[in-house]
């Protein structure tokens, strides 16, 4: 174990050193290849220009290589693989797509993903907004925000253990040690095996993600609320608006843009939800979602890259509109620079 720590530290130092060395050395080589002689103004200016042409690509090089190898190429390759058989050897046309449309588990996953998309972003944004408004009005608001924000630091796996303990069920006459069942029993209900109740178990899994992501929505929306010009509120107060009207008619319309950003960010996260389902149910009891089904087919029976690729493409198709919107926004911003 000690040797592993030493080698990890060594790698960190070596890695940083190699990276730094690359940038430093490539710059030195560039200067050596295109020298700037002091006695020849023309040659000097030509070489300075050449350096300026090459240098950005030296700076960008490692980043571009990583992006192309790990993201751009795989997107293209996954698209192509979706038309091939399980090992990626033979072209099978649309067979994988036809399989997906008819597969019951795939349909179940689509249904569950839509359910997640309908509930989680809305719930996180709603709770986030309410908590942001409430905590901005009390002196210990920052402490409260910290506590609600904290689950963001917890891994999905850790959060799953935390909530599995809450949903714990004990059979027979044993004492219920899961908080939910103890509460249900205390108010006179019957304890349930919550995570295997078909359909409703999806919601018990969603609670975990809502618990984690509400803090994110709260932080972003709180910043947006603070950015609202005070005059707009004062004018409404003078006109006799009450708190409820001010919130819905003055404050919310002014932060629509931020609400949209929070909503889309959580939407992307929900489309990729994997860890929670894997650790809580592994897709059993009708809780399968696309990311888990995709992972399942990557390894099931030695792996089926064709079917797996089709499922990945469905997730990709779902985020594409958001991607295009983001690129447009970024271009607009730079245009105004």
């Amino acid at each position: 174990m000690i040797s592993q720590i030493v080698s990890a530290v060594g790698v960190v130092i070596a890695g940083v050193f190699v990276c730094a060395l690359y940038y430093w050395l490539s710059d030195k080589i560039l200067q050596a290849v295109f020298p700037v002689p002091v006695d020849n103004v023309r040659a000097a200016s030509v070489n300075l220009n050449r350096r300026a042409t090459v240098r950005p690509w030296l700076f960008l090089g490692p980043a571009l290589i990583l992006l192309v190898v790990y993201l751009v190429y795989p997107v293209v390759a996954t698209f192509i693989l979706s038309f091939y058989d399980r090992s990626g050897g033979d072209f099978v046309g649309l067979a994988n797509y036809r399989w997906a449309i008819q597969d019951a588990q795939f349909r179940q996953s689509i249904f569950n993903n839509i359910l997640w998309l309908a509930v989680v972003p809305a719930a996180c944004t709603f709770f986030g907004l309410v908590i942001a408004v409430l905590t901005d009005r009390i002196w210990w608001g920052n402490l409260a925000k910290s506590l609600i924000f904290m689950p963001m630091a917890i891994s999905f796996v850790g959060a799953s253990v935390i909530w599995k303990f809450i949903y714990e069920y004990r059979g027979g006459t044993e004492t219920q040690i899961g908080l939910l069942n103890a509460v249900v029993q205390a108010i006179g209900g019957n304890p349930q095996v919550w995570i295997s109740l078909p359909f409703w178990n999806n919601f018990f899994l969603m609670v975990i993600l809502i618990w984690i992501q509400t803090g994110f929505a709260m932080v972003i929306l709180s910043a947006a609320l603070r950015g609202i010009p005070e005059e707009t509120i004062e004018a409404a107060v003078i006109d006799g608006a009450n708190g409820w009207q001010i919130f819905w008619k003055i404050m919310v319309p002014q932060i629509w843009g931020t609400i949209a950003v929070v909503w889309t960010t959580i939407t992307i996260l929900v489309l990729k939800v994997f860890d929670i389902v894997l650790t809580m149910t592994n897709g059993q009891w009708n809780t399968m979602v696309l990311a888990n089904l995709m992972f399942d087919w990557m390894f099931r029976g030695g792996g089926d890259s064709g079917r797996s690729a089709v499922i990945a493409l469905v997730i990709m198709a779902a985020v594409t509109p958001i991607m295009i919107w983001n690129i447009r926004q970024a271009n607009k911003e730079m245009g105004g620079h």
């Binding site: 790990y70 990945a312 997730i315 991607m323």
Partner: peptide, 13 residues
Amino acid sequence: GLIVVPLQMSLIP
């Protein structure tokens, strides 16, 4: 654009 590309697209290749 690449910020939102799901990890799932990269895994198989």
